[in-house]
Computed example of a mutant assay.
Amino acid sequence: MRDNCYINLSTDNGPEWRRGVWGSPAKYARLEQAKADWDPCNLLRFNKNIQPKAG
């Protein structure tokens, strides 16, 4: 399994994999915050989903 890849052309291998493909924990944290700001109810969840940051 690769640590990072072109996410749209890959199979979803679970939440740990989704966190790893973005390259760094800081980058994933920014994506979680953006998701919380723009989609707090997680309506856009039918892809390789990033959960909105709690809080």
Rank of each mutant, 00 (worst) to 15 (best):
M1C: 03
M1W: 04
M1T: 07
R2C: 00
D3T: 00
D3L: 05
N4S: 14
N4I: 01
C5Q: 07
C5P: 00
C5A: 14
C5F: 02
Y6N: 10
Y6S: 06
I7W: 09
I7T: 11
I7D: 07
N8S: 11
N8Q: 07
N8V: 06
L9F: 06
L9K: 08
L9M: 05
S10A: 14
S10F: 04
D12A: 06
D12Q: 02
D12R: 00
D12T: 02
N13F: 07
N13H: 12
N13C: 08
G14T: 03
G14F: 01
P15Q: 08
P15Y: 02
P15T: 07
E16C: 00
W17D: 05
W17E: 04
W17F: 12
R18S: 06
R18D: 01
R18A: 03
R18K: 12
R18I: 09
R18C: 03
R19K: 15
R19H: 05
R19P: 00
G20N: 15
G20V: 00
G20L: 04
V21P: 02
V21L: 03
W22Y: 13
W22T: 03
G23S: 06
G23Q: 05
G23K: 06
S24V: 00
S24R: 06
S24Y: 01
S24Q: 02
P25R: 07
A26L: 05
A26D: 11
A26C: 01
A26T: 07
K27P: 00
K27V: 11
Y28L: 05
Y28T: 03
A29K: 11
A29Y: 05
R30A: 12
R30F: 04
R30N: 05
L31H: 02
L31D: 01
L31I: 13
E32W: 03
Q33V: 02
Q33P: 00
A34Q: 10
A34W: 10
K35L: 08
K35H: 11
K35G: 09
A36L: 05
A36I: 03
A36Q: 15
A36T: 04
D37C: 01
D37K: 11
W38R: 09
D39T: 10
D39Q: 11
D39V: 06
P40K: 14
P40T: 13
C41H: 15
N42M: 05
N42W: 13
N42Y: 11
N42K: 09
N42T: 05
N42V: 04
L43C: 08
L43N: 09
L43T: 12
L44Q: 11
L44P: 02
L44K: 11
R45Q: 15
R45L: 05
R45C: 15
F46L: 13
N47S: 13
N47H: 14
K48F: 06
K48P: 00
N49Y: 08
N49R: 12
N49K: 08
N49P: 01
Q51E: 15
Q51G: 03
Q51L: 14
P52N: 14
P52M: 14
K53P: 03
K53L: 15
A54K: 14
A54Y: 05
A54F: 04
A54E: 15
G55L: 09
G55S: 13
